[in-house]
Design a binder for these strands. Structure first.
Lengths: 156, 156
DNA sequence: TGGTCCGGTCGATCTCGTCCACCAGTCGAG
DNA sequence: CTCGACTGGTGGACGAGATCGACCGGACCA
């Protein structure tokens, strides 16, 4: 994980479809070398995948909401987590330090779908209460933060 | 935006580097047709980009926090939004219906960086208070929800 | 009936991806 | 000091993919 790797990661975060040839030109190496580095970054778990970014509204998911989950004392977190994972509307799920031990980001087509989802969440054993906040607008989302000098693990 | 377009979108959300040839095989068309469809999806704003997904810990951003912003009565939202946008640590920014009018998802290398960030947020004119919750773990994030029969706009 | 538009196919060509052989620098052991 | 192994890079060759233009058939409408 040197300066070149960081540049490659930044370029791929900005445009995940950049070709190896193009990356090679940007970092001053040949395509096979770059491909080798990218493969290693994937193997080492630095790059975990590639996604097309889609406008949620354009695919009929016009409503985004944030939902906090407040558990009761009997809560089995493995069970809760599995049940949450099975709900495809939940795009992200964070385990938090606080009264609301999970926060979910969900997307649904219509308000009625959100209402149904909240009822389903409330029905999960161990969930005492939910707290839902509607997002009026998304200012931005998943903006890649350039990776700088310091990196986490001592990979390589 | 027909069934084939939705399949293409789903495939590209699952793997943003899928080649046109591969997409063509999956949907039963030829590569040029698929490329044409993808170009139109990009032009119409359905697909807004492609990103490599990176493990934040692996690039030295081990700490994720959710921060709610509570404005005071003098708040100028354009000003606040611009100031927030300038902070690269803020990966996502939602404008909410509620007392906390923004929620931010931020990533920083160390606790000290989070502390500094919170102080900077508090210094923005119009920000009365912030409320920070540390994420203990990310169960999952940005999981693509398959796009189904109903789509939003009447594109095409 | 004929013209036009839309979306697709086909074929040619150029670029890209990928594999392999080879090479230079580094490091540790004998 | 020399040898060998290892790491990370280059260059060439070949197959696959991307991309462009020409053509084709069905839908629609005058």
């Amino acid at each position: 994980m040197d300066e070149i790797d960081r540049t490659i990661v930044n370029l791929l975060r900005a445009d995940g479809r950049t070709s190896y040839a193009e990356l090679a030109r940007r970092v001053g190496l040949t395509a096979p070398s770059v491909q080798d580095r990218v493969t290693k970054l994937e193997k080492n778990g630095v790059i975990t995948g590639y996604q097309a970014v889609v406008d949620p509204e354009a695919v009929g998911l016009g409503i985004t909401a944030l939902i906090g989950i407040i558990p009761d004392s009997s809560a089995d977190h493995i069970e809760i987590c599995d049940r949450l994972r099975a709900m495809t509307e939940i795009e992200s799920c964070y385990f938090l330090a606080g009264v609301e031990c999970y926060q979910l980001k969900v997307r649904v087509p219509k308000m009625a779908d959100l209402e149904r989802l909240i009822h389903r969440l409330g029905g999960i054993p161990g969930v005492a209460q939910t707290r839902t906040t509607i997002t009026l607008s998304t200012k931005w989302e998943d903006r890649p933060q350039p990776v700088g000098a310091e990196d986490g693990r001592g990979i390589d």
